[in-house]
Every structure is written in C-alpha cells, then in structure tokens.
C-alpha cells in the first residue's frame, strides 16, 4: 500500500517539477523579450555593436546558407523528378520546386542551419561572458547588458534571417535548375520559365514572414539560454545544447501557427 502511495507521490512530484521547470523557462524567455522591447522603445542601443553583429551574423554565415540552400533545391528536384517524369510533366518541375521551397522548405532549412550557426554561437558567446563575469563587469560600469549586448544581437538576427532567406531561395532555385539540367536533361531556361509563369509572389512573401518570425524565435531563445548559463565550461556546453533544441521546437511550432494563420486568412 505504502509502496503504491510513494509511486503516486513521486509521479506527482515528477509532474510538478516538470511544470515548474517549463514555467520558469517560458517565463524567463518572456522576461528576456520584455527587457528587449523595453530597451528598444526609445531606441537606445549601441550602433557600432549593432553593425559588428550584422557583419558577424550575416556576412560570416552566408556561405553555409548558400551551400545548404543549393543542396535543398537539388534534393527537391531529384525527389520530384521520378514522379514528374512518370507523368511526363518536365515543364512543371520549376513550379513544384519553387512552391515547396518558397513557402515551406526554404525558410525551414535556413532557419535550422541559422539556429545551428548563429543561435548556438550567440548562446556560447553570451554564456562565456556570463561565466567569465564580463556581464557583471558591464553592470558595475552602469551599462545595461541587455541594451549593450542583447538588443543589437536580437535586431541583427531578425534582419539577417530575413535577408539570408532571400539569398537562400535564390540559390535553392539555382541548385534546382542545375540538377534538372544535369540529371533530367531539362533545360534550365525551361525550369526558370515554369518558375516565373507560376507567379509565386504570395508564397515568397509568406516564406519571408515566416523567416522573420523564425529569426525572432531563435534570437529570444538563444539570448535567454546564453544569459542564464551557470557553472563553467560544462554549463556553457549544456546551455548551447538546450538552446538548439528549444530553437528547433520553437521553429516548428511557429511554422505551424503561421501556416494555420495563412490558411485561415487565405493568403496561401
């Protein structure tokens, strides 16, 4: 009897612990967001730090984005090739690849690689600053760490995620066109013509809005985990791991909500 009761109690304790943990994480992220917004409302952030972050986030990661985007376009064409050649619809390949990549797969893949390259990096950097007490040093110099460190990163991640998605979409189409030419013998001009005929501006814009939201999610999550690091090198590693996992869940959830909203309003 007592054994049954302890197992019930430990189950309840488990549920309670998990909900407390979830509440603290969600609350912490919300508070980070509130701090960021409060520091931005009259815009008080360091312009030079902002430009440095724009360079670091955008210019230093565009090569990875281009490579991943090219491969994504190639994969989409390769996978739809069997189906398209079965129904003799080679002129539809550009349309099919463009549709999937602009509205869904482009922002998603670029968001995931962005969260790995930039989000993880950001968490590691902020975490190192916390562990080596550089954030405390800023505070003791009467500099608000959110204004000086977090806001420029947040802004540059949101802006650069959107811009890099435009670049990624372009290179995904180039990768798809090359693959269609090499593997299927479908002329690249035909590929581009079918892409342009399809008039995918709506999908493209929806994809960019999604990318902007992904950048927002990644920025908030990575800054929260970076600022809440505890305990040396091990803590930094664990924080990066948690940040990447939470960003992935956030990206998928935001993606679902955005798609639902778009379908509801008939934008897609």
């Amino acid at each position: 009897m007592s054994r049954g009761r302890t197992s019930v109690l430990s189950g309840a304790a488990f549920v309670g612990n998990r909900s407390l943990w979830l509440a603290s994480v969600v609350g912490g992220m919300t508070m980070t967001l509130v701090h960021i917004v409060r520091a931005m409302i009259p815009p008080r952030f360091d312009w030079r730090e902002f430009m440095r972050n724009m360079y670091k986030v955008g210019v230093k990661s565009y090569l990875v984005i281009i490579v991943v985007a090219c491969f994504t376009g190639a994969i989409m064409v390769v996978q739809s090739a069997t189906y398209m050649s079965k129904i003799h619809a080679n002129h539809m390949i550009g349309w099919g690849a463009g549709l999937t990549i602009f509205s869904e797969l482009g922002p998603l893949m670029i968001g995931l690689i962005f969260s790995g390259r930039v989000g993880a990096n950001n968490t590691a950097e902020l975490g190192t600053m916390v562990v080596t007490e550089q954030v405390h040093a800023l505070r003791s110099l009467a500099i608000d760490p959110v204004e000086y460190l977090v806001v420029p990163r947040f802004l540059s991640m949101v802006i650069m995620m959107t811009v890099l998605t435009v670049l990624g979409d372009l290179f995904a189409m180039i990768g798809g066109a090359i693959t269609a030419q090499v593997m299927l013998g479908c002329d690249w001009r035909e590929f581009l013509a079918s892409l342009l005929d399809a008039q995918l501006l709506g999908e493209f814009v929806v994809g960019l809005c999604k990318a902007c939201l992904f950048g927002f999610t990644i920025a908030v999550v990575s800054c929260y985990y970076g600022l809440s690091v505890r305990g040396g090198a091990r803590g930094v590693g664990r924080a990066v791991n948690n940040a990447v996992v939470a960003s992935a869940i956030g990206i998928f959830a935001v993606d679902y909500l955005a798609t639902l909203l778009c379908v509801e309003f008939g934008w897609l």
Partner: peptide
C-alpha cells in the same frame, strides 16, 4: 580553451552535421 572553446566545438558540430 575554456568555456568559449566548448561553445565553439558545439557550434561546429551542429553546422558540420547539418552539412
């Protein structure tokens, strides 16, 4: 290096794995 090195190793791992 210290905690910075661990952060960099983690970032590198996920980028290379994705590629």
């Amino acid at each position: 290096g210290g905690s910075e090195g661990v952060g960099w190793a983690t970032t590198r791992a996920i980028v290379s794995c994705t590629l």
